[in-house]
Amino acid sequence: MLPPARTTPTTQASATGTRSHAKDVRIGLQNTPVKGILYMLSTSTRAPEKRAAQKISKEKYIDTAIIACVVLETIIVTLALIPAQLWTRLLPQSSGAALNGPFPASIAPLITALLYLLPAIIGFLCRNWQKALLFATLPAWIGLGLFLIAATSKVGIFYLVSTDHVTENVSVLELFAALGSMGWLARQIFKLR
């Protein structure tokens, strides 16, 4: 085994001298333009990361808002497609059940406005037109699908393909697609300004 290395006063001085020299260099950098450049470089590399994190957070909130609008629109469309006769049977004590369904007469205009505004809002929140059309028409697809399943069990399988019902169903889908497209176009107009 080798004996432990001895430190002499000269090696200790040189070691502390190196440390103190490094400390002097760090202290000396605090008030020089080099430190300012180093600080700018370190903050400029953090800025894109911070912006990316904020963008991801913003996109997450927008996606959540789109999902909430789609769910709300699906519920409203499904409730709107339930026939008035069923509402009068389900809500016999309500005098306006045949006209307004489960909604009180005071908020019925709001529900109608939501039927038209929510697809446009969904289209406005979407970043590309394909998603805008899909998410704006999805509530109509789901609502019409549930309605057709229920109607088929009552009036037969050919209810879906009868001429007057096909055109009505297609026009509902066209309306929701047009509203979603208008919302997406409004987004493009506001983005240009």
Rank of each mutant, 00 (worst) to 15 (best):
E49P: 11
I27R: 15
L138V: 04
A136C: 04
G183D: 01
A150K: 05
T152H: 01
K23L: 08
V77P: 11
T11R: 04
A5V: 13
T78R: 01
Q130N: 12
T16C: 03
M182T: 08
L114Q: 00
G17L: 03
I107S: 08
S44K: 05
I66N: 02
T45L: 15
P119E: 11
K60Q: 07
N169S: 12
V170K: 00
A150Q: 08
P48T: 05
A80Y: 07
A68T: 03
T78K: 01
P109G: 07
S14E: 06
Q30D: 10
E59G: 09
A52T: 08
F103I: 07
T16Y: 03
G101F: 10
I75H: 12
A151I: 10
G180D: 00
P33M: 15
I67V: 14
G145M: 00
P104N: 15
K131S: 06
E73L: 08
W184P: 09
S171W: 04
A177Y: 04
Y61P: 04
A105S: 13
P9G: 15
A120P: 02
S153E: 06
W184M: 12
L72E: 09
L2F: 03
K131H: 07
Q188F: 01
T78S: 11
G28F: 07
R127Q: 01
D24C: 11
G17D: 02
S95W: 11
I56K: 10
A98S: 15
C69H: 00
V155S: 13
F190Q: 06
N100S: 15
M40K: 09
V161K: 02
T10F: 02
N100G: 14
G101A: 14
A15F: 04
L192S: 10
F103Q: 10
A151P: 08
P109K: 00
S153D: 02
T45C: 15
L144C: 13
V170S: 10
S95L: 14
P33C: 14
M40P: 05
G101M: 12
A113K: 05
T10G: 02
I111M: 09
Q54Y: 07
A98V: 14
L90E: 06
N169R: 05
Q54W: 07
T74P: 13
K23W: 01
L134G: 12
V170C: 05
T64S: 07
T112S: 13
F103D: 11
E49N: 15
L72M: 12
V172M: 14
D24S: 14
I27Q: 15
A65Y: 05
V25F: 10
R193W: 10
K55G: 06
A84P: 13
V172N: 12
R19F: 03
S94R: 15
K50H: 05
P102I: 02
I107C: 10
A132K: 03
L118A: 07
I142M: 03
L192I: 04
T74E: 12
G143N: 04
F147P: 10
S153M: 06
I56R: 09
W184L: 09
P83G: 05
S44V: 04
A65R: 03
